[in-house]
Design a protein around this nucleic acid. Structure first.
Lengths: 348, 348
DNA sequence: TTGAAAGCGCTACCAT
DNA sequence: ATGGTAGCGCTTTCAA
């Protein structure tokens, strides 16, 4: 009767013995950290193959003091934009031999950060509302030499924290200019954040651009309340409030595509046709912006490139401990069906 | 001039020294694996706090030979259903002290599996088209005592592989019964897989149910081609083929919601109103099924519970090495706007 | 109830 | 160009 569970794995020295070399040589063959003669390389590789050897990265990590692992912390795994970015990070990481811990959803995000330290990750990308993570936690990571990238560095002064941001200001400009060309001037903004929220500037940028581009000093704005969720439901609710307010508008811009999807439903339910009666624009260009009906005019952030750059900077910081200053990603306008020429509509 | 990078972390024995106890005691305080007197517990906790001690889980993993880490391998991170499931797994894992490696997107999924072994993960959930992962790779995991759950065990004989499946057969029954009640009998099916694809039974189940419930022996079916993608685009294409075929239908069922979203667009572009002219049903109840216009009738898999159970079984296998036999998750019908009473429409 | 000490499987330094 | 070997920071057995 043989044991069906053969947990006996072969180790480095088993390979070494079978190849007739030292353990060190086996390590060097796998790590490429010093020259090994072709003959020995072959013998080692053959032996490893025959024994089905898999190097123990845990043991290696312990010695080397680096795990080839990064972590991504997000506060919204349901957001397609976040997923697109995370996927890009994950792929870039894998191409460099890094694994990615993807974390989110828990109430207490600070708890994750302690775990990042215990698990000795090499770098962390914080894709979260900065208000939900304590500065002390971030400092804790830095004190241990863990590289950190955060979407908004606002409120944090340590120069080693790199902020790579999406350029919402530019996105908002592109949309307003697009709407202006279509003849719109009464543009309402549905913001998931309120005026007091300091980490997101979309609302502020909207006001600035409305002034710059349209000379509008007091545009129609409706804001969500804490907890600031940019969900389909919130978009729906805010649009209802906008409609019921009786304020004039011929176009609606939203914090993101999710909100725009909800807003479109509300508008439709109130008998407004899109884009004949009212134009709608979102932001992020999520997969479902394209399949919506009508398809959604929005702003693309090049999330793939963004994700790749996140990992690139992280890797650079891990390797060189060099500081990379704050950057932004250039967005682009994607015009679809939800925006159209402004026709002054009858107030119902 | 002081070095700004204080990578000196404190270790277990630093805590021990400060608390006036042995290193072993510090370990036991943190692991709760043996009784330690309240006095010592307090001293250790205080010392740990003061030194900001974070246990090194890498070192622990090396000794213990288990990393408290699981891995999820998916071939479709863009699918909201997958994300919902993965999120549920991740949360359940976190609640039990496990971290989750989420992997996917790479061409070569087998490559990830070697990495799972090297990184000594405790368990793996393979949420992939079984055709894309080699059985030898799975055997490799099992040989090393790594627990495995795979969505479909078909084609794999090792009893230790647990298959937890979504019950598509039941979902399809629910939809057909729903459509029948609405007076439909000409129901077309748009399948991302073709008849030869053995790992997915949705098409097969559709034929069986159509026979059972409606006595239809040869329903209208359009299939995708390899690589079998159940995307919005594929749904659109298949619906166009259906429409242009001239075949009669009053309702359309799709492999999943993504395909249904694409199909709705195609139908609309061809002048068919939903649900007045044709009813459409999807499957999976992704977030965007609700916000679509019209909102989509579909099948909910209780993805949250599914994810939790995936982790539960994985954990059980990790702890006891016990085998859990194949199970299924009970789905439920979600009726929305995209299905309505059948009115025999004019062929255009 | 607590402490001492033997490793876990590697990396990388010091030899040769 | 290759080998020997000292640890990395823990867990856990054995002893007290």
């Amino acid at each position: 009767m043989e044991d069906s569970r053969k947990n006996e794995q072969c180790r480095r020295d088993d390979v070494a013995r079978r190849a007739g070399v030292s353990g060190a040589t086996v390590s060097y063959v796998f790590s490429h950290k010093r020259y090994v003669s072709p003959d020995l390389v072959n013998r080692v590789m053959r032996a490893a193959e025959e024994l089905n050897y898999h190097p123990d990265m845990i043991a290696a990590a312990m010695r080397r003091k680096s795990t080839n692992t990064i972590a991504v912390l997000t506060d919204d795994m349901a957001s397609p934009l976040q997923i697109e970015i995370i996927q890009a990070i994950q792929e870039a990481a894998m191409n460099s031999g890094y694994f990615t811990h993807i974390c989110g959803g828990a109430k207490c995000l600070d708890g994750y950060i302690d775990d990042f330290i215990s698990r000795r990750v090499d770098g962390v990308f914080l894709s979260v509302n900065p208000a939900t993570v304590d500065n002390a936690s971030i400092q804790n990571l830095l004190d241990r030499g863990i590289s950190v990238i955060i979407t908004s560095r606002r409120g944090f002064s340590d120069g080693r924290v790199c902020g790579l941001e999406l350029d919402f200001g530019m996105g908002i400009r592109l949309i307003i200019e697009h709407l202006k060309e279509l003849g719109h001037s009464k543009i309402a903004f549905l913001s998931c954040f309120d005026e007091s929220f300091v980490f997101d500037r979309r609302l502020k940028r909207f006001r600035e651009r409305m002034l710059d581009i349209l000379g509008e000093e007091d545009p129609v704005v409706f804001c969500g309340e804490p907890p600031f969720e940019s969900t389909i439901e919130r978009g729906y609710e805010l649009a209802v409030r906008l409609i019921e307010s009786g304020k004039e508008f011929t176009a609606v811009m939203c914090t993101n595509d999710m909100m725009a999807l909800g807003a479109m439903r509300a508008l439709r339910e109130h008998g407004l046709r899109i884009p004949e009666d009212v134009s709608v624009a979102g932001m992020d260009d999520i997969l479902f912006a394209r399949s919506a009906y009508p398809s959604l005019t929005t702003i693309s952030h090049r999330s793939e490139e963004y994700g790749r750059r996140i990992f690139g900077i992280l890797k650079q910081n891990i390797d060189n401990k060099s500081v990379v200053s704050r950057e932004k990603i250039e967005p682009s306008l994607v015009v679809r069906e939800s925006t159209g020429a402004c026709r002054q509509r009858q107030k119902t």
